[in-house]
Simulated scan of single mutants.
Amino acid sequence: MKYLERFDNCLINPTEAESLDRDPISAFSFYLSGRVAALSKLAAEIVEDLDAGYNAGAIDGAKIAHAETLMWLWILGAYEVVRTMHQAKQCFSQSVAADLGKLKKQLAKVRMPAAKMEKAGSQAPVTSNRSPSGWDVSRKDILVNDPEDSINVSARALFAEFDRVLCGIKRADILSSHDESYET
């Protein structure tokens, strides 16, 4: 995913400023930056499985099922990363804080059915009249929201929005560290 591209052209001995320019999220939290990198690697693996699973007109159900299983873990991790960042929204510029809030809502919408097997905002179960992820063969994708929801949520679209928000963060958008958010 795009977040990982920041590290492709690594400097041999970068200065602190060069490191923060390359990975601004580490100015908020070095630990969380590593989690974002791990999520980006996981997303890349999911995309590889989807591409291979829908390859050349033949469907490899095992690859797609593996992608769906990894997607469940990605949703849980992505939600927690974004929730942590949004909880400390005073550490970010207003535009980044707003983007994090929107992304958190998108992730919350898919997290509830995936993690708790409940409809978002209620204690009603998610039904089993569709697999946890719908297969979107034409787009080589899986749908990751409540199967009864009238608007489908694409795994690839979630990855793109996650990348857009997190890769859009610049060093100037980080106003303080995660640690400092607990001091106020």
Score class of each variant (00 low, 15 high):
V47N: 08
I46E: 09
S33G: 14
S29F: 04
S177D: 01
Y3H: 13
K104C: 12
C167F: 03
L175K: 03
D146T: 00
D21R: 05
I142K: 01
V137D: 10
D141S: 06
A27K: 01
L158N: 04
Y54V: 00
K105M: 13
D49Q: 06
Q123E: 10
A52I: 07
A160Q: 14
D8C: 12
F28D: 00
L103T: 14
W74H: 10
W74G: 02
P24I: 01
F162V: 07
K119V: 07
M117L: 11
V110Q: 04
K170Y: 02
A98C: 10
W72T: 11
N55I: 04
A115R: 01
A98I: 10
L175D: 01
D146S: 02
A62K: 08
E80R: 15
R156T: 09
R139S: 11
W72Q: 12
A157T: 11
F92D: 13
E18M: 03
Y31R: 12
I169M: 06
I75C: 13
M71Y: 05
S150L: 06
I75T: 11
A108F: 09
F92L: 08
V137C: 01
A155D: 01
L175V: 04
L103H: 13
N129F: 15
S176E: 12
D163K: 07
Q94M: 07
G77P: 02
N13T: 15
P24K: 00
Y182I: 06
G34S: 15
A44I: 05
C91H: 12
L103Q: 13
L42F: 04
E16R: 03
G61L: 06
T127A: 10
K140R: 11
S33P: 07
R111F: 09
D149F: 00
A27R: 01
A27S: 13
A58F: 12
D60Y: 02
K104L: 15
A52P: 03
V96C: 13
Y3A: 07
V81S: 03
G57W: 09
D21P: 02
S131P: 03
Q123G: 10
F159S: 07
D163Q: 05
V36S: 13
G57S: 14
R164L: 11
S29H: 12
E16I: 05
A108Y: 08
Q123L: 07
S138V: 09
N9Y: 08
V165I: 13
Y3Q: 10
K41C: 10
I151T: 08
A17R: 04
N145E: 10
A37E: 12
M71G: 09
Q106R: 14
R171L: 03
P147C: 02
E80G: 02
P113M: 00
